[in-house]
Design a protein around this nucleic acid. Structure first.
Lengths: 196, 196
DNA sequence: CCTAAATTATTAACAATGTTAATATAATGA
DNA sequence: TCATTATATTAACATTGTTAATAATTTAGG
């Protein structure tokens, strides 16, 4: 990595840091180019020397959040036994992460992707995010032979869709319940899917 | 209804019509106050004589779309036997409606509600939308005694969450598959939930 | 060490957005 | 027909993302 590349990476980091701070605390609505640049200590136009447009910057933030979520989920997952309990704990933590950062959920699942190279792979990563973290758990269940492959695959899908759906409805207030009612619902749903 | 109320309703109708046409064909992104007013044949400021703000107008469009979806779903539902087949057909049509109008899905499920009176009830209506249409079907299943109440309630929830989730992932391109692959997935998921 | 060239940052400017205030037009009633 | 009221329109403002024109800074070469 040449000196210039180091500097460039650093500059990008400043803007990414600033943007993700805003997204975390105030959400997508409060984000603006001038906003980000202010917090990073630069003028708004400077941002365009390091990012094609604001969407590229936002997708960089997505990567940051994904790393953060992955760490959080893996930490929790490692506290319980591999296999079914691991998946269960991972799913719960996955949900809790988004409850903590509702703005991040919307960026992950509802923001329109742009045409920059590398956006589509990131989206695919979001889709299979939980599966990857739980890969070893699913593998263990498969190898135990207690469930046919097709059923396992179905359960993976169900988990994906249900989690996305319940979070969508709860975080965007299409669902009346408060947090504790939501959590009860989530647990019931996880019971349904992960009962084997 | 006084003469003025008739006129006012008519004017609101023009704007609602214009806005929903844009939403249907070009989606939320293309919607703007000037855009709507142009198509309605008025100046942009005139809109504010009939709506508090553009969000109120959008929520009026939501109601229009809900009526439309309800009609479509009920028509399809009536083509099959009551009970399980009715629910199945209704769920499929529900999904297809949003596939046809992806912008409407985002307004229904991801748009931030505003503080206008009447918004929260509309949101609750979205949440229980499919349940209401299928109320008689669910009732029949319950009365047949083939399933415990608790299981029925679980299945309702699962259906809600899974549909929301799979549509979210498909319509916002977090899922790679094309339309036919999506439909296969949807059917598999419905099989899972509605197998009794 | 000083100047020329290249790099990087900033200000100015544009078009588009939602919204409000000031003004013009139309409808109504005496 | 004229005064009043209701309704529509234009002007204006503050924000938004983005680009072009400048200003400041860093780098290279003598």
């Amino acid at each position: 990595m040449t000196r210039n590349e180091i500097q460039e990476k650093r500059m990008r980091g400043y803007f990414i840091q600033a943007a993700s701070e805003i997204l975390r605390s105030e959400g997508m609505r409060a984000l603006s180019v001038r906003n980000i640049a202010d917090r990073a200590g630069y003028s708004y136009a400077t941002l365009y020397n390091y990012f094609k447009d604001v969407r590229e910057l936002i997708f960089e933030c997505v990567k940051v959040f994904m790393d953060e979520a992955r760490t959080m989920i893996e930490t929790e997952r490692s506290k319980v036994a591999p296999g079914l309990p691991g998946i269960r704990r991972a799913a719960e933590t996955y949900a809790m992460f988004f409850v903590q950062y509702p703005g991040v959920f919307n960026i992950f699942f509802t923001e329109k992707p742009n045409e920059i190279a590398g956006a589509q792979p990131t989206l695919a990563l979001i889709y299979s995010f939980l599966d990857e973290i739980c890969a070893s758990d699913w593998k263990q269940i498969e190898e135990s032979g207690s469930l046919p492959k097709a059923v396992i695959s179905s359960k993976k899908d169900s988990l994906r869709f249900s989690l996305a759906g319940i979070l969508l409805l709860y975080l965007n207030r299409r669902m009346a319940p408060d947090y504790s009612a939501f959590k009860k619902m989530l647990n019931k749903e996880l019971d349904n899917i992960l009962s084997m």
